[in-house]
Design a protein around this nucleic acid. Structure first.
Lengths: 240, 240
DNA sequence: CGGCAAATTGACTCCACTCAAAGGAGGTGG
DNA sequence: CCACCTCCTTTGAGTGGAGTCAATTTGCCG
């Protein structure tokens, strides 16, 4: 049934959303998972990204939206002092690149932290889809408003303990949504990246994690994290 | 030409964008200013809002998007400790209420700080417009991405001096875009509101403004602000 | 002229940053 | 296989900027 070389149309996309995590963008809106690989063949880069390899860089023309299939990415900008500022982490199932929707240029750099794979849609495909599918339009709004919530959290007047607790809970939640364990996971990012993202010093991240561990809330071994008392973590996050 | 009672259609909106600041939403996309008051009669509340009066409250159903005509509003939420958290200020020409686009419920409270007037479009009108007009869709994206930039600024690792300097520059810029003086303006909001918005203590706002005044950068008298050395203010804002 | 809330000013405290140094972990080459 | 290097992480000691607490002062409105 799948034909080899064929021009992609809106209808194709409607019925052939890939099995990859881009499904999150499509499936909630009446699409099915048939013809899984057809779309992939058109839009996916098959070689995985290696740690340190960039998906795109600030200023790049907006060619596509990507969804993480496996691995982990971080997005960051370089501030006026030349310092790297981490804007976010992208786990499997999450969409990358919508920052470029308005200006048609990416505002952030996105780099793999792990061996990672993505799938994506070209810019034209996305805007055409959005034009013909009000549901997708809403989905794009949803992603943007998610980013706003994320920023509102970080912008809040929070202590270091609260920030770390919320960060761990956020990861836990996001992993569990994707079917991974919500109690035990790997921090693909460095302490430095976490610190930059949470607007803390790396030493503070280290100290807080050590304190949490001593209190029996989590067990941390290098990049491996185990949440021992998720309720206590929630209490800490809620300005205890 | 204007008829009294008439159902509003998409075409009407296309040709009858009001003269009020909602024009910012419409005019950049090929609309004109004819039939100024017709739309106003449908969507505008003619009585001005008094200081302390709410435009809408968190949880309200999303009925309309509003654009400030005159005066000033603040939006805020009440956090889990019962404390008011100011999210932003809305000056003439700026759009209020898009926070509700996805969930169809407002997430924030919006209250007048001054005697203020707005004009607005109903929810149905906005979503229909967006569906039929890709340009409007982009405009909505633009407003959301503006909010993201604003939050990124506040979320940044900034000193009290930097925050206040950026805040004053932002107001200056926004007033000048609307044809008001960029060097002298009124702070409709209280020190407490500014502090909450910038995540500082009220005392800190007071002290920093006093310090800026002593340094000859600004002249502050109660709510009246005069920028004396805008370049120095920019230097302070750029992490001097 | 009170009465009240907002704003200012001062004294003190504390949390997170900075500076500094001592472990690991992983990679490379001899 | 080990030595070495480098980067990341951890831990300790000290500092400082912004918060807190408290006392006035100022402006506003009845």
């Amino acid at each position: 049934m799948p034909r080899k070389s064929k021009t992609l149309t809106i209808d194709d996309i409607k019925v052939s959303c890939s099995s990859c995590s881009l499904a999150e963008l499509c499936l909630p809106h009446g699409m099915n998972e048939k013809e899984l690989d057809e779309l992939d063949k058109i839009v996916v880069r098959h070689q995985p990204y290696q740690p340190g390899e960039h998906l795109f860089r600030a200023g790049d023309e907006f060619r596509s939206v990507a969804s993480v299939r496996t691995g982990c990415f971080k997005s960051y900008v370089i501030d006026h002092e030349g310092q790297e500022q981490v804007l976010g982490f992208h786990l499997p199932g999450e969409i990358i690149g919508l920052d470029a929707i308005h200006s048609c240029k990416h505002t952030a750099n996105v780099v793999a932290l792990d061996t990672s794979a993505v799938c994506g849609l070209t810019f034209d495909t996305v805007t055409n889809m959005a034009r013909h599918m009000p549901e997708l339009q809403n989905e794009l709004f949803r992603v943007m408003s998610q980013r706003i919530s994320e920023l509102e959290t970080i912008a809040g007047d929070l202590s270091a303990d609260e920030r770390i607790a919320m960060f761990l809970l956020s990861l836990s939640d996001r992993f569990s949504r994707r079917g991974y364990s919500d109690k035990e996971f790997i921090l693909a990012m460095s302490r430095r990246d976490i610190a930059s993202y949470l607007r803390l010093a790396t030493e503070t991240v280290s100290r807080v994690l050590a304190r949490f561990q001593k209190a029996g809330v989590v067990k941390v071994d290098r990049k491996q994290v185990q949440i021992l008392d998720i309720d206590e973590l929630r209490t800490i996050a809620r300005k205890s």
